[in-house]
Simulated scan of single mutants.
Amino acid sequence: MRGTTSSLWRLARRARLPFQPPTHCNKNNTPLSIARPFHRNAFSSSPYPLPFRFFTGQRRSMFIEAQATPNPSSLMFYPGKPVMDVGSADFPNPRSAMNSPLAKSLFAIDGVTRVFFGSDFVTVTKSEDAAWEFLKPEVFAAIMDFYSSGQPLFLDSQSAAAMDTAIHQDDSETVAMIKELLETRVRPAVQDDGGDIVYRGFDPDTGIVKLKMQGACSGCPSSSVTLKSGIENMLMHYVPEVKGVEQELDAEEDGAALSGEMM
């Protein structure tokens, strides 16, 4: 009966209708509710919900906590389980998510535009016209379904994110210092905001370090400030060879930025 109630609730949420739990009557024809009450903040429009509990068919409970990020279009979801063992994974569009069952199921939710995997969290980014009030329950359900299914995070085990800041034997001393600073000083702070930063190269002739923002940090209004006022100043302070930092954009982001400049 619990599964029936959950299905009715999910259908009601997708139809944007108030959920009316089914009732049974006792021998005196007095209605008896058979629905388990949900947390009162589960459907709140606030981006700061309290932990949410789901009950699986195996009668096991799972807590999923949502947390706001500096980007109002992104939320971090903590399933209470490890997500990425090493590194991180960014999915800027549905095409890039075909190799991950979890990312693919999240993109199947109407309004989801980007997915990011961190060490113990999943960041979901929505479109401007989508409302978290309706998206959060569906994201909760998708994450719960994935972890109860026993599927791997990636269909191809080789798809795990490469360690971009790993220091190689052929790296110069300057590049090694840049990677070490990014890994120890920058990455932990950026991941706390539901995103990540990826090292994409250093040009010794110009002194420019190329970085790519991922997750909630991609498209965030404060990402350019973070790059210039935070990361650039720190790298220039510790590594004199660094003269500046540039952000590398996806093809979609580059096109959006170009159209914004033309307008």
Rank of each mutant, 00 (worst) to 15 (best):
V112L: 06
V112G: 07
T113V: 13
R114Y: 06
R114W: 09
F116E: 07
F116I: 10
F117Q: 02
G118W: 06
D120C: 03
D120P: 00
F121A: 13
T123H: 00
T123P: 00
V124S: 07
V124N: 08
T125Q: 13
E128K: 09
E128W: 05
E128A: 11
A130W: 01
W132T: 08
W132L: 10
W132E: 10
E133H: 03
L135C: 04
E138R: 09
F140V: 13
A142D: 02
M144W: 07
D145N: 14
F146A: 11
S148G: 04
S148T: 14
S148F: 14
S148R: 09
G150K: 11
P152A: 05
L153G: 10
S157E: 15
Q158R: 15
S159M: 13
A162N: 11
M163P: 10
D164S: 13
T165C: 15
A166K: 12
A166C: 08
I167F: 03
Q169F: 07
Q169R: 08
D170G: 00
E173D: 15
T174P: 11
V175K: 07
A176W: 10
I178E: 11
I178H: 09
I178N: 10
K179W: 11
E180S: 13
E180C: 01
L182I: 09
L182P: 04
E183T: 00
V186A: 12
V186T: 14
V190I: 15
Q191G: 02
Q191E: 15
D192E: 15
D193G: 06
G195T: 03
D196L: 13
Y199A: 01
Y199R: 05
R200Y: 09
G201Y: 03
D203H: 10
P204L: 00
P204H: 01
D205W: 01
M213C: 13
Q214K: 07
G215Q: 07
C217F: 01
S218M: 10
S222P: 01
S222W: 01
S223K: 11
S224F: 05
S224L: 08
V225E: 11
V225Y: 14
T226F: 02
K228V: 15
S229A: 10
I231D: 01
N233W: 00
M234A: 12
M234T: 14
M236P: 14
M236H: 06
Y238R: 07
V239N: 03
E241A: 15
K243T: 03
V245N: 02
E246T: 13
